[in-house]
């Protein structure tokens, strides 16, 4: 690998490894995500995709290996710090604050911009300055009119959309989306894909995705993981022709 293509790498791991009492979930993964791309991480169940996400965002500490984000070593950093640097993740199960309103959900992310908001003596109305921006974000993801809805009452698809709106509120340089379309009806899938396409401008996205038609239409680079190792990497055409990948993962679907 030539050193001159490093400048456009936003996230890079070297020998990333995580062991769980003898079991190696992620085994020496070297991942390079280029700035501005949508990069997919695919692989069969148990391939280590979610563990990888947890490692990249410091929710788990790697047993070995390093992670560099924007050229900076972020290995072992506190997860909140990683988020502040602009590497923000979503979760496989929809990560919302269920008993707050949609508006409050987004505002909690916007409020982060105030720095550490330990001001327990101030009134909530201080947060009203964020309402317009929060409404705009909700509108962006197709949630206008639902601002005051308690989130637990939203449909699954809308919760995922809200989650993306909340993540976008931080204006992260890089988003990690963990199965953004998992468990969704067709119409909802199309909407989320459309949304991801719209929000990619000016950011890098790394996503775990099972739905291959989503990956095909959306992603620039695909990394295939199996049993914690990188099996193949390339664009969809390349990866889908790789015999090893077909055997390990695509086999049944492309038979």
């Amino acid at each position: 690998m030539a050193a001159n293509d490093r400048s456009d790498i936003i996230l890079e791991t070297q020998g990333l490894t995580r062991e769980f009492s003898g079991f190696v979930a992620v085994d020496g993964v070297d991942l390079r995500v280029k700035t501005g791309q949508i990069h997919a991480l695919i692989g069969p169940n148990g391939a280590g995709k979610t563990t990888c996400f947890n490692l990249l965002t410091s929710f788990l500490e790697p047993t070995r290996g390093t992670i560099r984000f924007k050229g900076r070593d972020i290995t072992g950093m506190k997860p909140a710090m990683v988020a502040r640097l602009g590497l923000v993740r979503s979760f496989q199960i929809s990560a919302v604050f269920p008993h707050l309103t949609a508006l409050e959900n987004v505002r909690l992310a916007l409020q982060r911009a105030r720095g550490a908001s330990f001001d327990f003596w101030r009134s909530e109305s201080t947060l009203k300055v964020y309402d317009d921006r929060a409404r705009a974000l909700l509108n962006d993801v197709g949630l206008s009119g639902q601002e005051e809805t308690i989130v637990v009452n939203l449909s699954y698809g809308l919760k995922r959309a809200l989650e993306i709106a909340t993540t976008l509120a931080l204006e992260p340089e890089m988003m990690l989306l963990d199965e953004p379309t998992a468990g969704m009806a067709h119409g909802d899938v199309d909407r989320i894909v459309e949304l991801i396409r719209r929000i990619r401008k000016g950011r890098t996205i790394l996503m775990v995705e099972h739905n291959l038609s989503v990956v095909e239409g959306l992603c620039d680079t695909i990394t295939v993981l199996t049993r914690g190792r990188v099996l193949a990497e390339g664009d969809y055409a390349e990866v889908s022709k790789n015999p090893e990948v077909i055997a390990a993962y695509l086999g049944s679907e492309h038979a």
Partner: peptide
């Protein structure tokens, strides 16, 4: 507000920084 967020979903609050 942040406290409520933590009560509701702590990993998410962490992921927001």
């Amino acid at each position: 507000q942040v406290l409520k967020g933590i009560r509701e979903n702590e990993p998410r609050a962490t992921s927001l920084g």
